[in-house]
């Protein structure tokens, strides 16, 4: 509380100062995460010849695509010291809406893409409004939105998967391979390309735009930002809206990959996304974080899952190991903080 007051006496600029101090530390965490990823990859490649086979590498990349995109969505929100539990179920609802446009209404492909992005943005902005205007804590507001989206998915789809059999091009969004078209030896699916492109764009937004600056500032000291005359509510709604739009991308990716919108899917994905964000060095208390870190975090999760699977480790133990890694990563984050 005292801290808030002192910072409030200063100005928004002070919050930015804090940010740059955290930034160095966050780079260190990124390095740590990156080193862990390399160790995992080296270890698994020695442990099993199947691990580095091109098919398996593509499998890992593809399994990271959806989780990685969701994690990017969470990164923005978590940097503002908020949380978004609705990302998984929102992804599903976006996929279902695409199904409604393309399969139920037989509209052209681009409308389906807009349906997903629009649904995501709208839902995200509603979350943002609940948090900014009605002062509902983010955890509760997005928990409500999670259930709302989950329920709506089931209602709209009448509990059945919606298949995209009439829209052949739709499966290309995730399953086609532009890279494979140019270099046939590495058929990296488009879904992966979309993940990396989105990560690049998100990184620019976070580091080079006003939106990005306010994302960090809100997480560092919201009160200071408010006192310096910034419309905090509007930025919050925008940031949650952006997170929602990114969930729309995830919805397109998963629907395209499965060639269907699976209405019952989605719950549980938010926790994996949040885990990836935290492993990647973004602090749950806000104000620090990077997209690159999040992507590395997402890859640590998927490499670990795939590697343990390739080694035929019993599934029960796979879960134990994943839990240990998350705890270790967050503990490393705390140690880093203590030093900083």
């Amino acid at each position: 509380m005292a801290q808030t007051e002192t910072a409030a006496l200063g100005s928004g600029a002070r919050a930015f100062g804090m940010r740059s101090r955290f930034f160095g530390a966050s780079a260190r965490q990124k390095l740590l995460a990156f080193t862990s990823l390399i160790i995992l990859i080296v270890y698994f490649s020695f442990a099993s010849p199947a691990f580095l086979l091109i098919d398996n590498v593509i499998g890992i990349l593809q399994s990271t695509a959806v989780d990685g995109v969701l994690a990017i969505a969470c990164t923005f929100v978590i940097i503002t010291s908020g949380i978004d539990l609705s990302v998984g179920c929102l992804m599903t609802f976006c996929a279902v809406m695409t199904g409604v446009f393309l399969t139920y209404w037989q509209l052209p492909l681009w409308t389906g893409i807009f349906a997903a992005l629009g649904t995501g943005t709208l839902s995200g902005m509603i979350s943002g409004t609940l948090i900014a205007k009605l002062k509902i804590p983010p955890f509760i507001a997005t928990l409500g939105m999670m259930l709302l989206n989950k329920g709506l998915s089931l209602v709209v789809s009448a509990d059945k998967p919606i298949y995209f059999t009439d829209t052949e091009a739709f499966s290309l969004i995730s399953q086609g391979s532009l890279i494979g078209y140019i270099v046939p030896a590495v058929p990296i699916p488009n879904g992966v390309l979309i993940l990396f492109t989105l990560a690049f764009v998100a990184s620019l937004v976070l580091n080079r735009t006003a939106l990005g600056r306010y994302t960090f500032a809100l997480g560092s000291n919201e009160e200071a930002v408010r006192l310096s005359g910034v419309n905090v509510d509007a930025w919050k709604i925008t940031i949650y809206g952006l997170g929602g739009a990114i969930c729309g991308v995830a919805g397109l990716l998963i629907a395209s990959r499965l060639n269907s919108a699976q209405p019952a899917l989605g719950q549980g994905y938010e926790l994996e996304a949040i885990a990836a964000v935290v492993i990647g060095g973004t602090s749950l208390s806000g104000g620090a974080g990077t997209i690159l870190g999040t992507i590395i975090g997402a890859f640590i999760m998927s490499v670990l899952t795939n590697g343990l699977r390739i080694l035929s480790v019993a599934q029960e133990w796979q879960i134990v190991v994943t839990g240990l890694i998350i705890i270790l990563a967050v503990y490393a984050d705390i140690l880093r903080r203590r030093k900083a």
Binding site: S48, A50, F51, L53, D55, N56, G59, Q62, S63, T305, N306, R309, I310, S312
Partner: peptide, 9 residues
Amino acid sequence: DMLSADLAK
């Protein structure tokens, strides 16, 4: 993903 990993083996 599981099916894909198992096929890689």
